[in-house]
Write a protein that binds this DNA or RNA. Structure first.
Lengths: 117, 117
DNA sequence: TCCTGCTGTAAAAGAGTTGTGAACGACGCT
DNA sequence: AGCGTCGTTCACAACTCTTTTACAGCAGGA
């Protein structure tokens, strides 16, 4: 069972679905429980990178390369800061769901799960 | 009959399997009975080193060199401590299986076996 | 049996990592 | 210019991981 579904939605229009979250790559929009979620460019890009690799642990370095481009400077915290921002927006729109897991010393993993009892 | 299977799983994706244990080197994840097992960086590295040498007795010195890097300091107990931690996590996730055998005076050996009657 | 050396492991100590609010500059808009 | 937004950086608290230490239990040998 995969945690997120990805399917083509017409020519070039890909949509990632994970619980109440829907990421429309082509339209650069995100739906949370059907309502639109406003993300900045960086936030959206980060979410797209993570959500398209469900259940995969992605290193900070790889995330940085994919979103910011190039080699991550030592001691750079950009990835962490944006993961934090993203988590807050997701949690604000979709309570009782967790999306991004931290893998200490390595990176993050997009692993959607309901926190409902 | 080999104790652990190792096979390529697509380009660059290697997976070690030993009973209900699955070590996904590329994804840096471990599945125990299908469920994800959370390991720290050191624990994962140690497991990867041992599991990729099934039925081979590996000396402490070699383990240290492969996981910690460099020459093992005299009287260092790091390897023992981490083998202990790893055993506990494995046993907690996969009861009735034994994975790491001690070879007194020498080192350890990854030798998965079911303890079921 | 009494040493001695080795292993298992809990716990303390030390080192490193992550979450996050706040400050700051750049940019665009009115 | 004044304002709001965005991205980056910094600082600090809180937390997790790693290493070290200490001790108990074993096994083997004299």
């Amino acid at each position: 069972m995969e945690a997120a579904n990805s399917h083509l939605n017409g020519p070039g229009g890909e949509v990632l679905t994970a619980g109440p979250l829907e990421v429309r790559l082509d339209q650069r929009t995100v739906l949370a429980d059907g309502r639109g979620l406003v993300l900045t460019v960086r936030e959206f890009h980060l979410l797209a990178v993570l959500a398209s690799r469900p259940e995969r642990v992605v290193s900070r370095e790889e995330i940085y390369d994919l979103v910011w481009g190039g080699k991550m400077p030592v001691h750079d915290r950009s990835v962490d800061v944006y993961v934090s921002k993203l988590r807050h927006k997701l949690e604000a729109s979709i309570p009782h769901w967790s999306y991004i897991q931290t893998h200490i010393g390595f990176g993050y993993c997009f692993s959607p799960r309901s926190l409902a009892a």
